[in-house]
Design a binder for these strands. Structure first.
Ligand code: MN
Ligand code: MN
Ligand code: ZN
Ligand code: ZN
Lengths: 141, 141
DNA sequence: TTACAATATTATAATAATTTCAAATATTCA
DNA sequence: TGAATATTTGAAATTATTATAATATTGTAA
């Protein structure tokens, strides 16, 4: 659990999955490849629509199952941007998300989470931190 | 007839809604009262389940519609914590949210958004900022 | 107060995302 | 290879949300 993606290559990650007892099926590798190549915070629908071109028998259920597997393996996370549709992100360095309300695109941006001063969480165990901004991107402005 | 008076702020907000051409129906006032009293980031379901006790003909659609109205009026916002169900928060001072993965409760915590150092958002217009943590709360630890 | 137009509420049906399920298929490993 | 095990698939079920149309309420002006 808890693979670190940052300094690992594509093949190293697949390797790690295998070592964690996760079968490297054709579908899973293709889905992971999609996430690895397209850093666009896709929905299940987006992944499915793209991959069905090469894998005509692909089932949406498999995409859902694989996302779950990859989240459990700690290499993908769901990002809290939509309340009506899940969006996924491959785990890399800490970063924030900005959603443009005009074009809908979800941008990554750099931040230093340590710099944020918070209070009232004494004796709370924090597993995950997310920063999410909304507004209008520079292209749409 | 009518709602029990609570305090100035509560009535001021209702007043403001009326001035903005929003009808103050019995349902809307009760739903707003629920949000005002229970700062628990409720789902539509939670609001509905609670209010149907006093208003047996209440429709879930009305709760949905009212949440939309209140968001448009800028006194309620949807908070990004769930991808499968919307949760709402009455707009107050800036604060962060912490969701306990054991009990599911969503806590408020204080933060200073200005302290967070970000980069890469030049020429982006930011309308809204959210900070969301996940982990185990002090009660569940 | 009453009348009336504007707007809201309701129940129901429709839609959309996700989950569940069981059968078919694929993979592992002896 | 073949049995055991795990995955994929498509269909059905579930859940959250939105659309529709008949009915009811609200705010206002006579
Ligand atoms: Mn990202
Ligand atoms: Mn809050
Ligand atoms: Zn944009
Ligand atoms: Zn807890």
């Amino acid at each position: 659990m808890g693979l670190v993606l940052m300094d690992k290559t594509f093949n190293h990650i697949l390797e790690g999955l295998k070592e964690n007892g996760i079968y490297l099926t054709h579908q899973r590798m293709k889905i992971f490849e999609y996430l690895y190549k397209n850093r666009n915070h896709p929905t299940v629908e987006m992944i499915y629509k793209d991959l069905i071109k090469e894998m005509p028998t692909l089932s949406k259920t498999t995409v859902y199952n694989t996302m779950k597997i990859l989240m459990e393996a700690g290499i993908v996370k769901e990002i809290p941007v939509n309340s009506n549709e899940s969006r996924y992100d491959i785990l890399t360095e800490e970063h924030g998300h900005f959603k443009c309300i005009k074009c809908g695109y979800i941008y990554d941006f750099n931040l230093n989470m340590e710099s944020l001063s918070v209070e009232g969480l004494d004796n709370f165990i924090i597993y995950d931190k997310d920063v999410f901004f909304k507004g209008i991107c520079s292209s749409c402005f």
